[in-house]
Amino acid sequence: MTRTAIVTGGSRGIGREIVTRLAADGFAVVAGYAGNEELATEAVGEVRESGGRAIAVRADVADERAVAAMFDAAEAEFGGVDVVAHAAGKMVQSTVADLDLADLDEVYRTNVRGTFAVAQQAARRLRDGGALITFSSSVVALAFPAYSPYTATKRAVEAMTMVLARELRGRDITVNTIAPGPTATDLFFEGKTQETIDRLAAQPPLERLGTPADIAAATAFLAGPDGRWINGQLLRANGGII
């Protein structure tokens, strides 16, 4: 039986690399995307060209009906769901004093409500022996100025994930969170000076930025047979920053 993975945020950045890696590992993959159909179709096309199986499904992760429909599509196309890698997210940077609470609502909707909506369907519909992987961020522990709205939502993701791991007792389903450090994606580079990029790249003892492939490798470990004894954990994939 072919195992199936749903990857949210699958059209670009870390999510797209996870789509590619899990497909290479033999998964049939559902690439969930919010709005960029062209990139999602491109990601799926690359998987198919390499001999893999994949479909793209549009879903607002904070809309529980859209998330349920994405799971429906996975089950209809591939017979079930074994792994969910919830990589979709949104970032807002602002000091607490200057924060527009409308921006807070927006990032909360995607990062917190969205994670709950995806995790709820995963808890109900993952096959026994499956895995749910959510995404936090290493900035939670670094306490960078202007990251409080983003950090607050990611701390919520960590808390929910740890509780869910215990709620699924008896199902042989692992539930873990990956907290990437600075990773070389378009979203990371956007709005940053070269000086800032160089400073962040120098922070880890390994003295470089992470790559989407680094994070996809960690995801593949938790999704695969070698990660079955890892459960209810926070994996900081950040080159040793903290």
Rank of each mutant, 00 (worst) to 15 (best):
Q120S: 12
V118P: 08
A141W: 08
V44N: 03
R65Q: 14
G45Q: 06
F135S: 10
R109I: 05
E49Q: 11
V44F: 01
A141L: 08
I133R: 03
V140E: 02
S138K: 12
A131H: 10
V61F: 02
A69G: 14
D103W: 07
T151I: 11
E64D: 15
V112L: 04
L142V: 06
M162P: 00
A85M: 06
R53K: 14
F135T: 13
F116I: 09
A59P: 00
D25N: 13
T134F: 03
E158A: 00
A131I: 10
Y33I: 04
A68W: 09
G51Y: 06
S94P: 14
E42Y: 00
A76S: 13
F116A: 09
G32A: 03
S138M: 12
D98T: 13
A74V: 10
A43L: 11
T95S: 14
A73T: 13
T151R: 08
M162F: 07
D100P: 13
V67N: 05
A87R: 06
A131Q: 09
Y33R: 04
K154M: 03
T161S: 05
G32M: 03
A59W: 00
A102D: 13
F135A: 04
F135H: 11
G79Y: 10
T110L: 02
M162G: 03
S94R: 14
R113H: 05
H86Q: 12
S138P: 09
A88G: 09
R113M: 05
A87Y: 07
Q121I: 12
G52D: 09
F27S: 07
V61T: 13
A85P: 11
A56Q: 07
D103F: 07
R113C: 00
T115N: 07
T151W: 00
V139Q: 05
D82T: 09
T161I: 02
R109C: 02
A119H: 07
F71S: 11
E37V: 09
T115Y: 08
S137Y: 13
V44K: 01
M91V: 15
G114D: 03
D128F: 02
S50C: 04
V92K: 10
G129P: 14
V118I: 11
R155N: 12
R109H: 02
I55Y: 12
A159L: 08
V157L: 01
V84I: 05
D100A: 05
F144R: 11
A54C: 08
A102Y: 00
D60P: 02
A143I: 02
L126W: 14
A102C: 00
F135V: 13
E64P: 13
E106C: 06
D98F: 03
E77L: 07
V112Q: 06
L39Y: 03
D100G: 09
R65D: 15
V81N: 01
P145A: 01
D72I: 10
D72V: 12
V81Y: 00
V140N: 02
E46C: 03
V29E: 01
H86D: 08
D60Q: 06
R58C: 04
Q121K: 14
R53T: 13
D128G: 06
A85N: 07
K154Q: 07
E75N: 10
A156M: 05
F144M: 11
A131S: 15
N111G: 04
A152P: 14
A143K: 12
T110H: 05
Y108D: 04
D63E: 01
A54K: 06
A143D: 13
V44S: 03
